[in-house]
Design a protein around this nucleic acid. Structure first.
Length: 260
DNA sequence: CGCTTTTGACCTGCGC
DNA sequence: GCGCAGGTCAAAAGCG
């Protein structure tokens, strides 16, 4: 929700006003001389407001980029934790189930996929929500659904939308033990960035080419950046909830966990 | 109109 | 060889 409110409150369109003069960022600019005419005073106040808003916008943008950075580092951290757990918890208890999953997945001769790279992720969802959707930052195309013998809940089969370039597939099925948990089994590694990573990358590039001065004095750049963000957010309504979930999971360390 | 989802049919491997 | 179960295909339907 943080990101959403940011896009709403950014108010980055002082530039859309008819005044095309560059914004001046001068310390103490807001001090209005009592001897000025009324018109000058109004102009000064406008300029003052404008510069204040620009400052606010700059701060908000910094917060947003910081948020994205945090989100990405959290994502990396979670992935690392998943891999660690996967290695630690390959217990023989579930051997039978895991074997069937792996064998049935990889024994097909027409697909020469590696045996490594199978990850199972448990995600908390609303039990009343029957859709088998796991928000993981990638775009998926559903290509099948099947009711399996060991679980009354149907299993959904997805391919990464970037296929055949990206070979990753995932199976999503509601957990038998807990109706509020969805089990997502990922097969393979993505050979491209997630949509969130794309935005972070774009922002990083933006920051590389823009000095702090340009942040201040290049309203066009601000506009482009915000448009970029707004366009992305409008396209992916899951983004904000994912960011919120990532932050929340960092705090609680409960919502998002993985078991082999 | 193009993309995504649904769903029944088909394919493949395994166990008996 | 047959039946079963999981996985995939592809035509039809749905949707924006």
């Amino acid at each position: 929700m943080v990101a959403t409110s940011l896009t709403i409150d950014l108010n980055l369109n002082p530039l859309s006003t008819t005044d095309d003069t560059p914004v001046r960022e001068v310390e103490g600019f807001c001090d209005v001389d009592d001897d000025n005419s009324f018109e000058n005073e109004v102009d000064d106040r406008r300029a003052c407001n404008l510069s204040r808003k620009n400052n606010e916008n700059k701060k908000l943008k910094e917060m947003l980029t910081g948020l994205l950075d945090n989100y990405n580092s959290l994502n990396t951290h979670v992935k690392k934790l998943m891999q660690d757990k996967e290695e630690l918890e390959s217990s023989p208890k579930k051997r039978k189930f895991d074997d069937t999953v792996q064998q049935s997945s990889w024994k097909r001769p027409k697909e020469d996929l590696p045996i490594s790279g199978i990850k199972r992720v448990y995600v908390k969802v609303d039990p009343s929500d029957k859709s088998l959707v796991v928000k993981d930052g990638y775009q998926w195309r559903k290509y099948g659904q099947k009711v399996t013998r060991d679980n009354p809940s149907p299993r959904a089969y997805y391919k990464c939308s970037f296929s055949p370039i990206c070979p990753v597939k995932k199976k999503v099925q509601r957990s038998m033990e807990d109706d509020g948990v969805v089990v997502a089994t990922y097969e393979g590694e993505h050979n491209h960035r997630s949509t969130q990573q794309e935005v972070a990358y774009a922002l990083a590039n933006e920051r590389e080419i823009s000095t702090s001065e340009r942040w201040f004095n290049s309203p066009k750049l601000d506009e482009v950046l915000v448009e970029q963000m707004a366009s992305y957010l409008s396209k992916d309504p899951n983004f904000t909830s994912e960011v919120a979930a990532a932050i929340f999971s960092k705090i609680s360390q409960v919502d998002f966990f993985e078991v082999c």
